[in-house]
């Protein structure tokens, strides 16, 4: 009994401290929002083109590096941050479109092994280019002026930037929902996700749709990277944990389900945040355990559909 008690105090003592729990919850949700930006893009791309984009982590990383460079021009004003977010989104939109047209388009008729392999190669190429351009060391990006400090809510003080991330993430999620459900383009994307043969039947310009979706997914990742820059170490290793978490998210949420990506992102973000408190060196194992559990009870994910 005593050892169980000791075990509990050592690993779960923080539960008795509501301030710690609340802060960690907020950190988990804000990380989950960032994760959502990446995994939503991953899901969208998969849904339409059936490509798992292994390069999605480096796209995120590029967004963070763009923010780093822009922050270098004038960290004291808040304006740079707005520019950084735009650069992350627009820059990666263009990059994604270029990659899709030049490299992936010739491969849609080929075996899907080759498509995966190509996105894998992009990880090597972008990963090394980043080192060539920005160097091998980690960089810190300052939190933009307006969003520094902390804010009080429910009697607990939270870092303002974390609150901002959550609000921003919710806004992006709403915007994404609107695009997918209320615009003609979005309805086409959803139709293509549900039934790929429909595209040809509709006579839609499939090429443009594939390019658009890939670019949008890249833009979401770039935006996520720029948003994350002030709270992560911007370095060449940034993409690794990100892509792993994003994979775990889409497996849990169900491939090709943006709603599933949102729920699973928050779940993984929160599990990670508390896992770090309980088992500092084994937190990552917890998300895998979660994934394994989901795979056993619902192999197609929480919001996916069995084929």
């Amino acid at each position: 009994m005593e050892t169980i008690g000791l075990f509990f105090t050592e690993h779960f003592g923080w539960i008795q401290n509501p301030v710690v729990v609340a802060r960690q919850m907020l950190a988990g949700i804000s990380n989950g929002m960032l994760l959502f930006l990446i995994s939503a893009g991953l899901s969208l791309i998969f849904g339409v083109s059936r490509i798992v984009n292994f390069a999605h982590g480096v796209l995120f990383m590029l967004g963070a590096y763009f923010a780093l460079t822009i922050a270098g021009f004038g960290p004291e004003s808040g304006l740079w941050f707005v520019l950084a977010l735009i650069a992350g989104a627009v820059g990666l939109f263009a990059f994604g479109a270029a990659v899709e047209m030049a490299l992936l388009r010739p491969l849609y008729q080929a075996a899907h092994e080759f498509q995966l392999l190509l996105t894998f190669a992009l990880v090597f190429i972008v990963g090394d280019l980043v080192k060539l351009i920005w160097g091998r060391e980690d960089h810190a990006v300052a939190v933009p002026g307006l969003l520094t400090g902390s804010t009080e809510a429910f009697g607990v003080t939270f870092p303002t930037y974390r609150m901002f991330l959550i609000v921003f993430g919710v806004l992006v999620a709403i915007a994404l929902w609107w695009v997918l459900h209320r615009t003609r383009w979005g309805i086409l994307v959803r139709a293509a996700t549900m039934d790929r043969h429909m595209l040809g039947a509709l006579g839609t310009n499939t090429k443009a749709l594939f390019t658009g979706v890939f670019a949008l997914g890249a833009a979401l990742a770039g935006l996520g990277g720029a948003l994350a820059a002030p709270i992560v170490a911007v370095g060449p290793g940034l993409h690794v944990q990100v892509i792993i978490d994003a994979f775990v998210v889409v497996v849990i949420g169900g491939m090709a389900s943006v709603g599933g990506a949102l729920v699973a992102s928050l779940l993984v973000g929160i599990v990670n945040a508390f896992g770090v408190l309980a088992f500092p060196s084994a937190a990552v194992v917890l998300t895998f355990a979660l994934m394994a559990f989901i795979l056993i009870v619902r192999p197609w994910g929480l919001f996916g559909t069995p084929e």
Partner: peptide
Amino acid sequence: EYWPLIMGVIIVVLVL
């Protein structure tokens, strides 16, 4: 030291 970059390019060439 940029062997991964070269390997990435090799993969792209191979695949395409």
